[in-house]
Structure formats: C-alpha cells, structure tokens
Design a protein around this nucleic acid. Structure first.
Lengths: 201, 201
DNA sequence: CTGTATTATGAACGAACGTTCATAAATTTA
DNA sequence: TAAATTTATGAACGTTCGTTCATAATACAG
C-alpha cells in the first residue's frame, strides 16, 4: 500500500518552507520552488494544488517546528522563566547559522500579505495566536510554581513576551549586532514585567 | 523658471509611499502605481527612473514623516519620557485611521527584501539607524534633565525603545486589539528599563 | 509477462510583469 | 505666431508569472 511518490513529502515541505521563509510569498516564484524541491510543475500542482496552498503547508510546518523548539527549551531548563529566556535567546541568535532569516516567518508573512491573500493572512494570525496560547499556559504554571507573583496577568505577560520576541528578532535582522541583542534580552528578563525570582546566569 | 510638470512631485511620492507601505515592494506593480499617482509609465520612468528608485524615494519620504511626527510629540509634552510614550502610543494606534498599515514601513521592508534588492535593503537599515540616533539624542537629554538615572546607557535604551516600537506595531497588526496594546505600552513605561520619574497619566 | 492504474513530466498557455521609445501635446523662446 | 524645446503619452516589447494537460514513465495486479 505504499505511495508511488519518488519524493518525500515532508522533505519537500521543509525545503519549500525555507525558501518561502527567506524570500517571502511574492518574492518566491514557482520556478524558484521547482528548483529547490526538484520537482516539475505538474507534480507540485498535483501534490499541493497551488502556490498559496503550498505556502499554507509551509507555514504550518514552520509553526510546528517553532513549538518543538519551545518544548526543547522547557526540557532543558529547570525553571520556566529560564526556559523562556533560553527560547528567546535561541530565537534571536541562530547558533547553527542555518535559518533562512533572523525574523520569524509568521511575522514576515503578516508584514507582507494584504487582504488580497485573506486566507493565508488569517491562517498566519491564527498560528501566531496558538503560540501566544502556549505562552499563557506556561506562564500560568510559572505562577503556580511561585516563579512569578500571583498578581501578574498571564494573558498580558504572554502578549508582552510576543512583543519582545517579535521586536528582538526583527531588530536582529535590521542590525546584526548579536551582542547588543543578547544584552537586551538580559535586560528584559532582569527589569521588565517578566522579571521574577529566577537565578540569572 | 517653473517646471513644466503637470503633476506635483511631492504628492506623487506621497501617494506612491502609501501604496508601497500597504502592499510592499513586490506586492505593488507599476500598473498599480500608475493608477494611484495618475501618471503614464513613460512619465513615471522619466521622473523616477525605476520601480526601485521610486521605492527608495518613498522610503525617504516615510522616514521624514516619521521624524516630523516624533518632533510633534516632543513639542506637545513637557517631559521627554512623556513624549516618547506619546510617540509610541500614536505609532501603535492610528487615531486618524488613515495609515496604510499598522506596521512601520521600514520594518515591513526589512522583513520583505533580500539581498536581491541589496541597495534598498541597505538604505532601509540606514534610515532605521537614523531613527535610533534620534532616540539616543533625546534619551541623553532625559538623563541630563534628571528624568532618567545617570547609570542608564542611552544607546542601550534607544535599542530597547526600537524593539518595543517594532514589536508593538507588529503585534497590533497581527491582533487588532488596541486596548491590550495600549495596556502593554503603559506597562513598558511603568516597569521596564525606560521607567523613570515621569508622571504617569 | 501483460494490461491497468498511478504518478511524473515539461512544453505550452494566457496574463501580468517592468520597461522603452516613437509620437503627440504643451510650453518657452525669438 | 512660428520655431525650438521640453514634457507626457500609451502601444508595444521581451520576460517571467502561476498554472494546465496531453504524454511518458513507473508501479502494481493478475
């Protein structure tokens, strides 16, 4: 019952994701895509339907990888605030040097698209909302664990965290001064609303 | 000695700016531009040279308007920190409802372009740097005036402010919840590195 | 091994892209 | 007002766009 496909669908989606991430929706042509995924137009259209639909799958793949990375940070750090800080640092500086852009693909997409791609735009906003929900959950847990004061509002802190990540990654793309950006991360976790009773490194 | 132009160059640049700001560089076609500025292709090319060059002029026009807005805030508020907060608020929520996008055009451009438009990208980064320099200047003055502690680093605070504005405006575009964003602004100026001895409203 | 079903191919399509340039219109000069 | 100069026009160019579909290649079933 195996598929007859000579290509690996997941690999194709990942390659497409990286290209879209780097060049954006309008900046990526189907011919660019054909080259990097090594498929002919007929096969791409039979498999994914359209440029927009492939982009949608790429977005979803990206958001999935985002959550995997977040969970890795939670496992690596004993405290939740430590994990959040590690996550921000890992998102802001790409130690592997392999990311197609310093910026978040979802943010790039929200910056680029208009109502002419209403469905893609709505999907992107929803995926970003999903990330924020994850943040709310772990921040609630941080309050339960006593890492943050009970008076704090988890929804508000999650929004705040989103703003920081978006701002920091975009700033990192505009000025590739890693040192300055990491210093900002320290400052934000030391003196801002997210400052808690966690050991600083 | 008057020019023979039947069109007003500044008006044309402003209209082009608004379209580019809304739809981005790749999302805007020369035919879109021809419609909104009401000029025929030959005239546009005789005046501006290329799509890229018109975009460059649009960016410069945008950055100029940005500084005008900033100076207005400085005039309206007695304290510098109050002016900075007012500026952030006015950038984050468009009271007039006329802005083509909640996001900063420079940030949108940095998000969209790649090295394929190296010159435009470099120009954009430079304009953003110019904004940051303005911030450094007024933050220095805020320290002199005693609004901020002398131990603060103006360069670092200016970077921090850039991150906040970028993050907040992008967040506002992704979730058009003005109330939540304004609450975040309050929080940032109340508890973050930019919190000073200024009266809160 | 043969016939059927499935998958991959890539030439080709119409539309839209950025741009040019011979011509027309308007303005200035004499 | 006539000639010279400047400015505006828009049809048309070659290219690239997203997409399709008749055909070829492959895999599976009997």
């Amino acid at each position: 019952m195996s598929k007859h496909a000579r290509f690996n669908r997941d690999e194709v989606v990942e390659k497409a994701t990286n290209l879209y991430w780097e060049k954006g929706f309008h900046g990526t042509s189907m011919r660019n895509l054909q080259d990097v995924v090594d498929m002919r137009p007929g096969s791409i259209y039979a498999t994914f339907g359209s440029k927009e639909n492939l982009f949608k799958e790429a977005l979803q793949h990206y958001a999935g990888a985002f959550e995997v990375q977040f969970n890795k940070c939670l496992e690596q750090q004993p405290s939740i605030l430590g994990a959040l800080k590690l996550f921000v640092e890992s998102a802001v500086v790409d130690e592997t040097g392999t990311a197609p852009s310093a910026m978040c693909m979802m943010v790039k997409t929200i910056a680029e698209l208009t109502e002419e791609q209403a469905e893609l735009l709505a999907e992107t906003k929803q995926l970003l909302s999903g990330v924020e929900s994850e943040f709310v959950k772990v921040i609630r847990e941080a309050i339960v664990r006593g890492e943050l004061d009970e008076s704090k509002d988890p929804e508000m802190l999650a929004r705040y965290l989103q703003v920081q990540i978006i701002g920091l990654r975009t700033y990192a793309r505009a000025n590739n001064n890693h040192q300055a950006v990491l210093a900002l991360v320290d400052d934000i976790f030391a003196t801002g609303p997210l400052a808690g009773a966690v050991a600083q490194d």
